[in-house]
Design a protein around this nucleic acid. Sequence first.
DNA 1: GTCTATATATAGATAGAC
DNA 2: GTCTATCTATATATAGAC
Lengths: 193, 193
Amino acid sequence: MGTSDTRGTRERLIDSTRELLWERGYVGTSPKAIQERAAAGQGSMYHHFHGKPDLALAAIGRSAEELRARAEAGFSGPGTVTERITGYLRREREVLKGCPVGRLTQDPDVMADPELRRPVEETFAWLTGRLAALLTEGRASGEFGGGLDPAATATALVAVVQGGYVLARASGSAEVFGRAVDGALGLLAAHSR
Amino acid sequence: MGTSDTRGTRERLIDSTRELLWERGYVGTSPKAIQERAAAGQGSMYHHFHGKPDLALAAIGRSAEELRARAEAGFSGPGTVTERITGYLRREREVLKGCPVGRLTQDPDVMADPELRRPVEETFAWLTGRLAALLTEGRASGEFGGGLDPAATATALVAVVQGGYVLARASGSAEVFGRAVDGALGLLAAHSR
DNA sequence: GTCTATATATAGATAGAC
DNA sequence: GTCTATCTATATATAGAC
């Protein structure tokens, strides 16, 4: 994320909030911790933002945007649908840190606030829809059999990624994430022609 | 869970801690909130438990035990392997509340404490192993093709459940969980003979 | 824009009376 | 076993000087 000194206080505050939300969640993140990590004072933080929720909104929006951009980069690249989906699933991730957006679904205060919740909801709706479109494309081109349900399969694939993070964190091993993905790809392969 | 008055203070404290850990996580759960929900005083809580971590340990152990028992009930029942796995995946769940054990993987203070973490780790190791054994059984009996990788597939299935919770919470809709499960079962069906 | 002072509420406990 | 008092640290700000 690059919390460099040249970024300006406002940006550093957003970055440090993103990191802390990722590591500790919303309830576990205090203004003081944000300030310390950003090397900013109390006054600076409350000058640039109205408070913790306001800062969290900026941070969550940024993380959601980044997730989307990274995924889209893989989806719209070259290759068959299977190749692009495989690339997305096998892309390098900081698996043991979990998903910076997905983890927010476990934060009651985030989910209770419509403003904070929206980016989370939209991110997964977009991601699932995008994968479903790819699968539809693959079915139309004959890459997959007609029995494949694009919407359900797309949802399952996104779930494997999110669940893969959970299992990796539970076991303390990034390999488990790879195993979940391999399992999903193995099943998907059975649907190929 | 039944926080009835007849259960004894100690049990009520464990129950209310389980509920709060489920709803708000470890960091988001205060001793005061636990006491209020259990209708127990400060003194009672610290008489029965050494503090928040001690109480959390009892609560997490109980939840892990319950998850395991419920899963095993479905796994060891009658029917083909596919039927039993389908039964497990489609079993009724409080989907929008998330998984009481899986959500703990997002709690940094739980994962940082080896004692609190162990039940979480063991639960998913057991669950994945148990499903892998079932899939191996199904492959041996010819229910699935030889190309199916039991360990990877089992991991993917557990991930679909955990990720299904995440997506359901993100969208605010329990249906999404069912869609993820349907997608996984659709893929698994392609591996059947 | 940033800093320091100040303020209220809650977290997470300990001590000792009953 | 349970209750009340007390305690220190932190959460989450606001106010006003510089």
